[in-house]
Amino acid sequence: MTIGKMIKHKELLGRPTLRKYLPETHWITPARTLRMMRSYSTIFIKPNKGSGGTGIIRAKRIRNGYEVRSGQSRKVVGSGSLYRAIQSFQKPSQRYLVQRGLQLGRYKGAIFDARIYMQKPVSGWVISGMAARVAAPQRFVTNYHKGGHAAPLHKVLLSLFGKRRKANDRLSKIAALSYSIAATINKHHPIRELGIDLGIEKSGRIWFIEANSRPGHMLFKQLPDKTMLNTIMKNKRLIRRLHS
């Protein structure tokens, strides 16, 4: 089951305790795009039903105008041509949203986010895996299929904050937030797995990026410790046995 990004955004927006974690997001129009570009230094244009980081466009304010990038392609334009440049990277068959860009924390010079692998093998949600997704050099998406790689989340948070207590505090917050997100989306959709992606700024602020109802587990194969991968696979078998 593929659930569109905007549906999930609106469902989470309906829960007051989650609103502060949601970056501003709208269906794309020329006026909204320009307004958000004035409010934020970076915006992302995402296909409503895309996954794996495919088709994401980034528009960024630079000294002499705007830089619009998709994959390895880039255009530098003035404000009059900004929307046209974004459209040139869009697929006509897709609906797109425009979203505030986040100042993600960095690990060894590359941006990262957190992937939380949630499963509901029986009656309650469990966190089967947590890992950092570290982007490939010069990439603005962290997805495995776009060259991103896994790193132990606690190690990455410790590197970002330099203090064990703050890293542990953020881990607890990430876990609590993931349970809330899974429960909220599950209210509307009969799902048993969810890959939740959260952005963490250097300040420690946490943002919701995406929740994928068909999460891949390849990221967890890259971790030296296979405990989380084994838990994911064990729960997958249990879900198949009990619910297929």
Rank of each mutant, 00 (worst) to 15 (best):
T54E: 14
I56Y: 01
I57K: 02
A59W: 01
K60T: 15
K60D: 12
R61M: 09
R61H: 11
I62D: 10
R63G: 11
G65P: 03
G65R: 07
Y66L: 05
Y66D: 07
E67R: 13
E67W: 09
V68P: 00
S70R: 10
G71P: 04
Q72H: 14
S73W: 08
V76T: 15
V77N: 05
V77M: 05
V77D: 01
G78T: 14
S81L: 10
L82D: 02
L82M: 02
R84S: 13
R84A: 12
R84W: 09
I86H: 02
Q87P: 03
Q87R: 13
F89V: 03
Q90N: 10
K91H: 14
P92W: 10
P92A: 13
Q94C: 14
R95G: 10
Y96Q: 03
Y96A: 06
Y96V: 03
L97I: 08
V98T: 06
R100I: 08
G101I: 04
Q103F: 08
Q103C: 09
Q103E: 15
L104Y: 12
L104P: 05
Y107N: 05
K108G: 07
K108F: 08
G109K: 06
A110V: 12
I111F: 01
I111N: 06
F112W: 10
D113E: 07
D113V: 01
A114M: 12
R115P: 00
R115S: 00
Y117S: 00
Y117I: 00
Y117P: 00
Q119P: 07
Q119Y: 03
V122P: 05
V122H: 15
S123Q: 14
S123P: 08
G124K: 15
W125K: 04
W125N: 03
I127D: 02
M130S: 03
A131I: 03
A131T: 11
A132T: 02
R133K: 10
R133Y: 06
V134L: 04
V134G: 04
A135D: 03
A136C: 04
A136N: 08
R139G: 05
F140R: 07
V141S: 04
T142I: 00
Y144S: 00
Y144I: 06
K146C: 10
K146L: 07
G147I: 05
H149W: 03
H149Q: 11
H149A: 10
A150I: 00
A151P: 00
A151R: 06
P152H: 06
V156N: 00
V156A: 04
L157K: 06
L158F: 11
L158Y: 12
F161A: 05
G162R: 08
G162F: 06
K163I: 09
R164H: 12
A167F: 07
A167G: 09
N168K: 14
N168G: 13
N168D: 15
N168R: 14
D169S: 15
D169F: 13
R170W: 01
R170N: 10
R170I: 13
R170K: 11
R170T: 13
K173N: 12
A175Q: 13
A176H: 11
L177T: 08
L177V: 02
S178M: 03
Y179G: 04
Y179A: 04
Y179W: 05
Y179Q: 03
A182D: 04
A183V: 13
A183C: 08
A183M: 12
